[in-house]
């Protein structure tokens, strides 16, 4: 294993932060403290964490309605994210975006996106920008299996392949588009089968295994930085909490869900593999768990105390200038 103890700690802390962030939101909704639509990333933590480990602030990512994990992995402050979900003026977006639009462009986070597939062309544009300006930056689009049926996916990948853009397209295939199992909606067995029509490199990774995603995303990002064009990376994963907070998941096979959640939890898999390296002990993980709990408790406390936007802010930030 080519990871230092520090890198393993950093990775586990990030995955745990994403998981606890989502669990916290469930608790807050149950307590009637949060409004709006929330889509949780629990179960998919290994993907965002592994991909973003290869990125710097100058590299852009675009996300989805299920975007909290991508934001945290890209370095967005979970406290500011929590404040945003409470609609406070101290939030990442000054309370104007909410869960489906969290963004932090200084961190290279081009936003969650409420439109399925809507982030894919934005990321393609960020990759075009990097190419035109001659930087070594890359741009990464995260999207679900359902988004690969959208025209935005097809049009963007066509252009990215034509122009050999420094882009990575990460499909988080969690088995469901909203409530419909993937096999009802997508006529190919694997999403990567679609890449052939763009002449694009395509790779499948085990989305529950940080180390597998890390290696394959790393290769693709290195190729993009070297001018070798884009890659479609399909990560097989599972949505632990259903489509949205409050989804009773009647459409889901209970045994299948149980199997993924009990036996293929990406945090458990990471902990097992990291522990095998001998660099981290069980106590190390539990210490991190406590620190993460504390961070998120503080984030909620701060968010609840933070000021609301002023009503007149409804009219600010519409334009840079309008007269």
């Amino acid at each position: 294993m080519d990871f230092s103890r520090d890198a393993l700690i950093r990775t586990y802390r990030q995955m745990r932060t994403i998981r606890r962030f989502e669990e916290k939101l469930q608790e807050l909704v149950a307590a009637g403290k949060l409004g709006g639509f929330l889509h949780l990333y629990a179960g998919e933590e290994a993907i965002a964490t592994a991909v973003c480990a290869h990125l710097s602030d100058g590299d852009h990512v675009g996300s989805t309605h299920r975007g909290h994990g991508h934001c945290i992995a890209k370095g967005v402050d979970p406290r500011a994210m929590m404040a945003e979900l409470f609609g406070r003026s101290t939030g990442t977006n000054k309370g104007k975006g909410g869960s489906m639009h969290i963004a932090d462009v200084e961190k290279g986070m081009l936003g969650a996106n409420g439109i399925v597939g809507g982030g894919i062309p934005l990321v393609t544009g960020a990759a075009l920008s990097a190419q035109v300006r001659g930087t070594k930056n890359v741009a990464v689009a995260f999207f679900g299996d359902g988004a690969t049926n959208q025209g935005q996916f097809h049009e963007s990948l066509t252009m990215a392949a034509n122009w050999k853009l420094p882009a990575l397209y990460v499909c988080e295939n969690n088995g469901f588009g909203e409530f419909t199992p993937t096999e009802f909606a997508i006529p190919v067995k694997d999403i990567v089968d679609r890449a052939a029509s763009y002449g694009m490199r395509a790779v499948i990774a085990d989305g529950m295994d940080f180390f597998d995603v890390f290696e394959k995303a790393g290769n693709a990002i290195d190729a993009a930085r070297a001018g070798e064009g884009p890659t479609l990376l399909e990560c097989k994963t599972y949505r632990f909490c259903g489509h949205f907070v409050g989804d009773p998941t009647p459409y889901r096979n209970k045994q299948e869900a149980e199997d993924w959640i009990q036996n293929r939890d990406p945090l458990d898999i990471f902990e097992r593999k990291a522990a095998e390296s001998g660099l981290l002990l069980g106590d190390d993980f539990r210490t991190i768990d406590l620190e993460v709990d504390e961070l998120l408790n503080e984030a909620v406390d701060e968010a609840e105390k933070a000021p609301h936007p002023a009503p007149e802010d409804v009219l600010t930030d519409v334009y840079v200038r309008y007269s």
Binding site: P121, T124, G125, G151, H154, T158
Partner: peptide
Amino acid sequence: TPIAEMGLLGTAVGAAATGL
């Protein structure tokens, strides 16, 4: 660009948000 107006305009938006 290809005859793909959604990809064309979406890409232009992304490029505009990132320095072009």
